[in-house]
Amino acid sequence: MKHKGELASPVAVTNRINKKKGERTKRDFRGGEAVALGSIIPITLVIVWEIFSRIGVFPAYQLPAPSAIVETIREMAQDGSLWNHIGITTFRVLVGFVLGTIAAVILGSFVGFYKKAEQLFDPMIQAFRSIPSLAWVPLFILWMGIGEPSKITMIAVGVFFPVYLNIVSGITGVDRKLIEVGKMYGLNTFQLIKRVILPAALPSFLVGLRSGLGLGWMFVVAAELMGASKGLGYLLVLGQNTLSPETIIASIILFAIIGKLSDWILKLVEKRALSWQDSFVPR
């Protein structure tokens, strides 16, 4: 059935491709319009900012001009230090995110599937959750030193909770009616989990992943502020210590870009995986 294209005549195939292309350009055009509309205000603000900085309304030692910030980024890119900082920060977030997610998936599935596990683990996890995660920082540094392990643990803790909570609520929230349908077809527990419960819990899991990733980026800043010799968070400290606001703002902008980029990747995954959902009807 998937090979329908191979059997169809070349003409039909070209026709279909053309049609698809037509749809794509149309959608791109509409997307382009949205982007254009959305960028009017930021672009205007940047221009106003540049002008005010040039004529000296904003003093350069407090708020440098956008062009100065871009220049800072360009210089860092040229001497290679930029990629170093971005690389190490992204690496920390990625490793922390993966570790936190794995822990959350294992514990969350247990708690979601087994009532006993819920009674055993959930109260404790909820209690830990009410501790502001940043409060762990001194303890982790004390335990693991100032190197990578403490930072990555920090991030993993931040990622863990949203992913865990969403997995549990996803699994416990699966419609009993759908489970009954599965049972009517004689599925055993394992098949039920694989064919009904997991797909039904997937939307919630993906929501958890996205908010977990967001928290991961938040926590990497905290971890790198506490003590690092590399990374975007280190640039923040460096900028503060060397009285160069352009470095700080450059770092903030880079955080925004990479954070948005990683979220966008997850969003693409979500869109692919959840194309069956009502809310993903293309408008």
């Binding site: 759908l178 009954e180 349908v181 009517m184 004689g186 009904v196 797909p199 039904a200 997937l202 069956w276």
Partner: peptide, 19 residues
């Protein structure tokens, strides 16, 4: 026990939305 010779049609369609 549930027997595989029995079919059930519910009040609602109960289709799996991801299939």
């Amino acid at each position: 026990e549930i027997q595989d010779t029995t079919g059930f049609i519910f009040q609602e369609p109960r289709l799996f939305p991801w299939l």
